[in-house]
Design a binder for these strands. Sequence first.
DNA 1: CGAGATTCATGTGAAGTATACCTTTAGGCTTAA
DNA 2: AAGCCTAAAGGTATACTTCACATGAATCTCGTA
Length: 426
Amino acid sequence: MIVFGTLFFNYRKIYKVGFTWNFLMVQSSLNNIFESFIERKSIFQNKDVLNLKFSPENIPHREKEINQIASILGTSLRLEKPSNIFIYGKPGTGKSLCASFVLLQLNQIAIKKSIPLKTVFINCKLGKIADTEYRLLAQLAREFGKNVPNTGLPTSEIYKAFYNEADKEKRIILIILDEIDQLVKKCGDEVLYNLTRINQELKRAEICLVGISNDLNFLNDLDPRVKSSLSEEEIFFSPYDAIQLKDILLERAKLAFNESVIGEDIISKCAAYAAREHGDARRALDLLRVSAELADRNGDAKINEIHIDMAEEKIEKDKYVEIVKTLPEQKKILLEAGISILSEVNRRINTGELFNVYKTYCIKYGIRPLTQRRISNMIAELDMLGLLNAKVTSFGRYGRTKEISLYIPRESIDKINKILTQPAEK
DNA sequence: CGAGATTCATGTGAAGTATACCTTTAGGCTTAA
DNA sequence: AAGCCTAAAGGTATACTTCACATGAATCTCGTA
């Protein structure tokens, strides 16, 4: 208790000093910047519309899919358990958006007519709250208002907690598991098996599962029992083409910008850029948002082609920066080591080399290095994140190793290095 | 010359360990009768 | 004596380590033509 108190006191002192210093330094120049912002009319009407989290009222070119989902889940309004659904398709094809859209509508009707319906949307993405069996169940239990600890309890206990909360009253429960493939890749399909089976044990409530996956082959690796029960219905989302993307962007642009800020030709170009890859609407929206931000910051009244080109470049650079920022410390050091030798020697390196360099970096920062075994796994994880490219290759007589090369483009390296060295020095 | 054995350097799975955190429980302290 | 607080005990998940065996093609070995 006493130790904690003093620590806290010190922290406050440091914080206070730092704050006043910064404030004095920055104050005068800030005033000018702020004033220019007030004078100039913003090109945005409602910037949130371009945010990925925003859910529009209109979802163009997905009417068919939405109707499909809705007609399957609709039975829940008659208190009949809907079929489980498995939704799959490439990233940025609107899977999550459509699912949560239908969920929202269902919820509204359910509330209006006081139908006992509970909906839960959980993202199982790695590094998020629900990427293990325990964490998924804990999150579910929390959704039902039961406060459970992050660790310490047996998984069966959490399972029971969720089960009890869910079964409290007669109702239909819709659980949407986004990026379900990542969860299964990390800890197997046992969770899903349990969840699909839980219905037989529930007395009052009934659970319906909706799995969303980016991985098209995900179902094949599943336990056949889970596979058949999870995919009672399957819905495939095909990528958008350039024309569809344009419609989506037009829809959003109408809401996001003030009038005559952006021309239709510019939007077409945005759509064309994004369609070039694989019809990723997320990317198209990002492109539009970033170019608008650039234009706004530049003081330009209109968005033009140059902004889009700049945005394209910036996104390409920042894509990696964002990922790197959220990396745990050990992985940052590993990545820093990787970047340093890979930019020094112009060839692919192997696990042993990288591990040695990594160790020297650990010593430099005074951090205990992890074992090679763990590093091997981490390299694979960085590969999954698209930061490194690690391919297992055999050199016959000369052993077998991962051939590692950098996935990050040269231009982003500087930016990433800044992030990498910063926290490690503390 | 070619089939099969060998080899290397690491991949990979499983079991074990350390850490952080949770609940339960027992003992001590406080409070009120 | 009842109620509350605290610390220890007993238990778990997670991240990591240790151990042991698996991999896979270049190279070596040796029998055969």
